[in-house]
Write a protein that binds this DNA or RNA. Structure first.
Lengths: 167, 167
DNA sequence: CTTAAGGTTCAATTATTATTGAACACAGCC
DNA sequence: GGCTGTGTTCAATAATAATTGAACCTTAAG
């Protein structure tokens, strides 16, 4: 959250730190590791693309962390890779549209869970037949149906959400 | 996820276990501890209210966990307390409307973060004046404004989301 | 061919979170 | 009073997740 040397001096650095901290909290809200927020935050606050080494220096994190964090951010679609010919290093810049970050999160983290939940429900409905006691069966039937309705709604609302958040 | 003695025998117990596992995953999706999902799951799958001791037996968890889990679920509004006169024990039942669980989560976990994010942005805007370089200032201005827009949208969308999920 | 810089991977370590269990409080009973 | 059942709290411990760092892969330069 600070420079590696721990003293933000210029106003710009203060602002960088605040943006950083904004994203630190932001990603934790959706259950992503803090370091992702830090990396994204640094890139978001930077007028020009940065190398992995820049991030390591800025945040005082290890090469492994930086590499893994950037990888994740790329699969989320929140960070782009920039290549300049005649420079071997690859640079990174934030995709400033937060919908990428949120959308990627929904796609990579939420959807699979939702899917597995729906599979579980399908299996449950099949098990239901084996329950003999009719009263108990009716009870389960109602509760399971309720879960199914909710699951369907969640499925429906996610695309709307993404559309709405898109800028 | 099983009986404390680890052998689900009747069909009903199999179904209970599946519902349980459904919620185990469900709560982790929104970053709540697994035990909350387990407790809620057991109550959701039970035709009648249960005591804390019932939960301890069923899930093989400690008294402390059960107490804390129920406390949390009550503050989320996902679980109700039921008192019978002439029984000293307090019983618990799930509020089957999942919007309670989700709504409580939004109220207790999301909103405060969102609020603190907005405070951070407000502070940021004030800092901005102190940046001298006009080009850099314009850059930060744009990025911060973008964050503000998104933050506002999130604020707007949460009530809609809750309304939509409400059954 | 050898060296070095940029990057990735993954087992080991560290930090964070959740769970336990022992101490405590309260209420009713003997 | 002392004893028992129900429930809470919180420091200690266990479980989980994130981070590191060493080994490794590529590519380009000397």
């Amino acid at each position: 959250m600070m420079n590696a040397d721990d003293k933000p001096s210029t106003e710009a650095e203060v602002i960088d730190d605040r943006i950083l901290s904004f994203f630190q909290d932001g990603v934790r809200m959706i259950g992503l590791p803090k370091s992702l927020g830090e990396i994204y935050g640094v890139l978001y606050a930077s007028p020009k693309p940065m190398t992995m080494q820049d991030l390591i220096n800025r945040l005082g994190i290890s090469k492994g962390s930086a590499s893994q964090g950037l990888k994740m951010l790329r699969t989320l679609g929140a960070v782009r890779q920039v290549d300049y010919r005649d420079d071997r290093k690859t640079y990174f810049e934030a995709d400033v549209e937060l919908k990428k970050l949120v959308g990627g999160f929904i796609r990579e983290e939420i959807r699979p869970h939702l899917k597995s939940g729906q599979d579980k429900l399908a299996r449950l409905e099949r098990e239901l037949d084996k329950v003999d006691d009719p009263e108990l069966k009716a009870f389960y039937e109602e509760r399971i149906k309720r879960l199914g309705r909710w699951s369907g709604k969640a499925n429906l609302v996610l695309p709307l959400l993404q559309k709405f958040l898109g800028e």
